[in-house]
Design a protein around this nucleic acid. Structure first.
Lengths: 109, 109
DNA sequence: TGACATCGCAACCCCATGGTTGCACATGGC
DNA sequence: GCCATGTGCAACCATGGGGTTGCGATGTCA
């Protein structure tokens, strides 16, 4: 069903620049722990942890416990809901979005 | 060029539920003034004005002056940038997003 | 011209949230 | 068993932003 489920969590999660960088880091380098990620950023480990929790709440990330450490893995599936929302809203105005919306419904994505 | 330009403004603009409702209202009913829109919401006119300004700053809306009133029109094109970002990040993990990303690059959207 | 409506600006309040620091707890290696 | 390392929790701070109210300016119309 393409009609948008609630995209609030996803949009809110991706509204923060640092959080998007975390997502990109996980996309590039694969699963990582908060401390590992914190090494690539200027902010503290705790800040990264908070971001990971926010992303986790949005379903964009999941944490697997490995002994003493917690390894976070990207699960970007919920993004599709947000894309549905945008494609539907914009379909009537913008050709690109209309094509996208058409594609989404054709493929039943 | 599909590589993401800065999607920060779009994500931030759409992170707020009221703001998404404003966008949906404009999509359904066409261009409208802030006072007209405010009639459909519980919040004040000024709050709606602020949201329209935020959307305008993100390029998702543009205001046309008509005599005494300011009529706002939806311009959802910038959403495509945000969709690029999501499709690229998620392409490696999620089949739906991969198909989307493929579609985007095939069509040079 | 005068009355009414609409907009735009500014001040203000309050809460969510990004960020920090500090510390307690668990786990693994020696 | 002990220590190092990493995690998780809590308190705290500061800023931003959503929301409101008030008011002056600007148009519109009778």
């Amino acid at each position: 069903m393409s009609p948008a489920d609630d995209p609030d969590a996803v949009f809110s999660a991706l509204a923060d620049a640092t959080r998007r960088q975390v997502v990109q880091a996980l996309a590039r380098s694969g699963p990582a722990t908060a401390t590992e990620l914190a090494g690539d950023f200027t902010v503290s480990r705790q800040a990264v942890v908070k971001h990971l929790q926010a992303l986790s709440q949005a379903g964009l990330v999941v944490g697997d416990r490995e002994g003493r450490e917690m390894r976070y893995r990207l699960t970007p599936a919920p993004m599709a809901g947000a894309m549905d929302w945008m494609a539907e809203v914009g379909a009537g105005w913008d050709d690109r979005l209309a094509a996208l919306s058409q594609f989404l419904s054709d493929r039943d994505l």
